[in-house]
């Protein structure tokens, strides 16, 4: 049996737990804790170590999807979780410009240190006043070579499309390496 993994990361409140929950065939194993001082009135809990979902591909292959904590003090977790990953999904909250600064820092770190294919995802595109993927690309200075995809993490088709686009990106990077 072969196991492979993908990692979903992004700032606080970007929708990482929901993204994994939407696609996972098991209940997401989550390490959520009640927020002591909620930064977002609609969010009472946050992930403190990781989220964990699973998708059986066939008899010999299982995909595990890990979600990193969004809060800065758990930064060390993304490095641990990202080792040996197929690729990364960097999820952004399209309606929270107050999280863009942190998103920039995460993206800068990836551009400098991550030798892993990744896509950037503009989540919550169903909400009024969501910043479009193209606006987010400019605002966060995301290079043209990186895909910025629209997404609604509660919608299975939307999440499927993101994972497919990440897999196409991985294939392209393999073509580039060969």
């Amino acid at each position: 049996m072969q196991n492979v993994k993908m990692v979903v990361t992004g700032p606080f409140s970007a929708g990482k737990t929901q993204f994994i929950h939407t696609i996972s065939e098991i209940d997401v194993v989550s390490t959520e804790r009640r927020l002591s001082h909620p930064a977002d009135p609609d969010k009472s809990q946050t992930t403190v170590a990781m989220d964990f979902g699973r998708l059986t591909i066939d008899d010999d292959l299982i995909l595990y999807i890990f979600g990193t904590p969004g809060q800065r003090r758990f930064d060390f977790m993304w490095r641990i979780l990202s080792q040996g990953t197929l690729g990364l999904v960097v999820l952004l909250d399209s309606v929270r410009p107050d999280t863009f600064r942190e998103a920039r820092e995460i993206l800068n770190t990836f551009q400098t240190y991550a030798d892993v294919p990744y896509v950037v995802v503009a989540n919550k595109q169903d909400l009024p006043d969501a910043w479009s993927p193209e606006d987010l690309r400019v605002a966060l200075r995301i290079p043209r070579a990186i895909k910025v995809l629209p997404c609604v993490a509660t919608d299975r088709e939307s999440v499927k499309e993101v994972l497919l686009q990440l897999l196409y990106t991985i294939l392209e990077s393999m073509d580039g390496d060969s």
Binding site: Q2, V4, L55, L61, Q83, L86, M174
Partner: peptide
């Protein structure tokens, strides 16, 4: 540097087909 996994092409296409 964070190192990714280098799977075979076959693994990726199986993932794509399943999703």
């Amino acid at each position: 540097r964070v190192r990714g996994q280098r799977p075979s092409r076959n693994v990726i296409t199986r993932l794509i087909d399943r999703i």
